[in-house]
Every structure is written in structure tokens, then in C-alpha cells.
Design a protein around this nucleic acid. Structure first.
Lengths: 187, 187
DNA sequence: ATTATTTTGCATCACGCGTTGCAAAATCAA
DNA sequence: TTGATTTTGCAACGCGTGATGCAAAATAAT
């Protein structure tokens, strides 16, 4: 019927995600996307719409990825699940990872007013996802003041990720993470 | 000898600071600065240099402002000083304040690679300022593991400010702040 | 008044941005 | 092969950006 697409959508979206992750929405130019994906901008726009729609698609993908990981970690929600999250900062990252760029969603917070409502909604959804999981773990372990403490954990996590972005180094958040782990243990 | 400047430098820098605070460095255009200050861009550039230099000047000003406040709060550093910081989220803000925009320095983290080294250095200095004060308070109160805990407090504070920016509402960080206050009390 | 010096407003510059028009190329059912 | 349909690459567009050239305006010492 028609000419088939010459590139792998998943691979391209991953490359786009990394580009946005590293540089943010605004600072990532369409020319950079071309270079990162190896696909002409005409092809990208034809397949995924505008730059903003592309960003939206990528955020959805990011949310889905993390969500899948969280479902495993919090499969049986306990204090230990929370501990695993913050222990993650101490684990060395593979050389090809970009965990040193912080978190795509956290980084996006500062660009909210420059993007659309759908994007704002996704950042909020991401935050809500974390809170839900933390809350489940605290509740399952019968910990008091669970709601406020879940909110606290989300905030601490975002502070850690912000610090990672600032330092350009995942390990920079280890001291913070350690105190959080101790605090959770003490609840 | 020469024609005197027609505007008040302090007032202008305050207006510029608010503009950058609200929208970030990149998203604040020179035209917006004109409107915010009532001064033509030619006047601004003539007085303060380029947009980047202007941002640098404003960051320095911001750092100095907060530093002065911290010196008061931590004049006699104790647990209570730390408590005051996080209790601040519960205090209603005057209608003209822009505390709902989070913190200029925290917001700037995401723009670091798009600006120069001097700006990166100032953000780091700001973070170091907070850590120093927290550390002094913890040490003065003879609290163990002071260094890590000071790091933790900075991270928690930045997470809170990031949340404020996301919600556009200072009160959004209250649950987090309350847990931090309790935690500090328990040390 | 004259002169030296700085500020100011206007118009404008070159540049990079996101996006699109268009026609050639590629595919596959008929 | 034909024809319908989609993708692709090239060039280009309009727009907003940070920054500047220039001359008029404003000051204060001489």
C-alpha cells in the first residue's frame, strides 16, 4: 500500500528521551533531535507531530518505564521497598546510563509554564505515582502519619534528584539518601 | 561631568530578579525585562552588561539577600534555627511576594549547562551556604552524624522548594516540612 | 556658553528557532 | 506495470531573540 517507515520507533523515542532528559525541553533543538536519532526532522514530525507532542509522547514513555520498575519494587510494599529506592543512589550506574542527569520529570518542573497543560498533568501524575507507592508501603507496615511521611519521601527524593542534576553525579545524593533510610527505619 | 542615570539601580535589579525568578533565565526575554523595569534595553545593557551578566548580578544579589536573613536566623545556631526555616512554609506570604515561584537558585539548576561557569559557581555557593548554617546548628546542639544530616536538610529543603514551584503554592510543602521538623526534633 | 561625557530611544541587525511545501523516492496491492 | 499512498530530504519561511549603531538629549564642570 505505502512506503514503510525506515526507522525503529522505539529506538528513536529512546534517543529523543535521552536528549530531552539531558538538555530539557526548550534547549533541545530540532536539529539536535535529528543528530540524536539519525532521522530527519521531517520524518520525526511526520511520525510524532510537533516538538511539543514529541515531548509529551516521551514523557508518557518515561512515566511508563518508571512505573513498571516501581511495580516490581513495591510488589509487596514494605519499609524495605522504600529503602531500596534510596539505596539506589549508592549503586554504581552503568557507563551508558544518564542517571547523572537527574530525573526527566523533576527537571521538567521548571519548564512547566513554557509548555502545555498535558505536560504539567504528566509531571503531577509522576509525582502522584511515587506518593502512592510510598504511602502503600507505609500503610502496609502500619506506620503512623503515613500520608505526610509519604509526601516527605517524595520531596526528599526530588531534592536528591535535583542535587544529582546539580552535581552531575548520582553519588552526590548518597549522604541525603542515607539519612532518609535511617529515618524510615526509625519510624 | 556627564548625564546621570535616570533610574534607581536597586529598584531595577529587584524587578529584574523577580522576572528571572518567575520565568527562568532563558524564558525571560530582553523585552520582558524592559516591561518589568520600565527601562529600555539599551539602558539596561549599558548599565549592567549583557543579559547573562545581568543574571549573574541578580544571582549575587539574591545570594546576599538570603545570606543576610540566614545570619539572623542562625545568629545563635540551634535546632530551633532549623525549625524556623521549615516552619516558614506554614506562614502565609504577603500578596506581593513571589515565594510561590520556589527558589531562584533551585530553579536555576536546570539551566546550568546553558549558562556560564560563574553562574554554576553561585548556585553551588548558595547550596554551600545552607549546608554551612545547618551544620553549625547541628554541631552546636551536639547532634551526631551532623554532616550527613546537614546534607539531608539541604536536599529536603530543595525538594520542598521544587514542590512549591510545581504546585505554584508555598503551602504545598507544609506536609514535607512538618515531617522534617519532627525528624530534627527526634535527633 | 562651551565642552566633555554619559545616557537614552529608535531602528535595525544577524542568527537560530520550529515548522512547512514540494517533489522525488519507495513500497505494495491490483 | 500501474496506481495509490506514505515517507523522505532539501530548501526555505516567518518569527522572536540578544545585541548594536547612531545621533539626539541631558547633565555638570570649566
Amino acid at each position: 500500500m505505502a512506503r514503510p517507515r525506515a526507522f525503529d520507533d522505539d529506538k528513536v523515542l529512546d534517543a529523543v528521551m535521552i536528549a530531552f532528559w539531558r538538555h530539557g525541553f526548550e534547549a533541545t533543538t530540532t536539529r539536535m533531535l535529528e543528530e540524536a536519532t539519525g532521522v530527519g526532522i521531517r520524518g520525526l514530525f511526520n511520525a510524532f507531530g510537533s516538538k511539543e507532542q514529541l515531548f509529551e509522547t516521551v514523557l508518557k514513555r518515561y512515566l511508563r518505564n518508571i512505573s513498571a520498575t516501581l511495580e516490581q519494587v513495591f510488589a509487596t510494599p514494605t519499609r524495605g521497598s522504600i529503602d531500596m529506592v534510596f539505596a539506589g543512589f549508592s549503586q554504581p550506574e552503568p557507563p551508558d546510563a544518564i542517571a547523572h542527569a537527574g530525573c526527566l520529570m523533576v527537571n521538567t518542573v521548571n519548564e512547566l509554564e513554557r509548555t502545555n497543560d498535558a505536560i504539567r498533568a504528566q509531571v503531577n501524575a509522576y509525582r502522584a505515582l511515587w506518593k502512592t507507592q510510598f504511602l502503600a508501603a507505609l500503610t502496609a507496615d502500619g506506620i503512623a502519619d503515613a500520608d505526610n511521611r509519604a509526601e516527605f519521601l517524595v520531596g526528599a527524593l526530588w531534592g536528591a534528584l535535583n542535587q544529582v542534576k546539580l552535581a552531575g553525579n548520582k553519588a552526590a545524593a548518597i549522604p541525603l539518601a542515607e539519612v532518609v533510610r535511617d529515618t524510615v527505619k526509625s519510624w
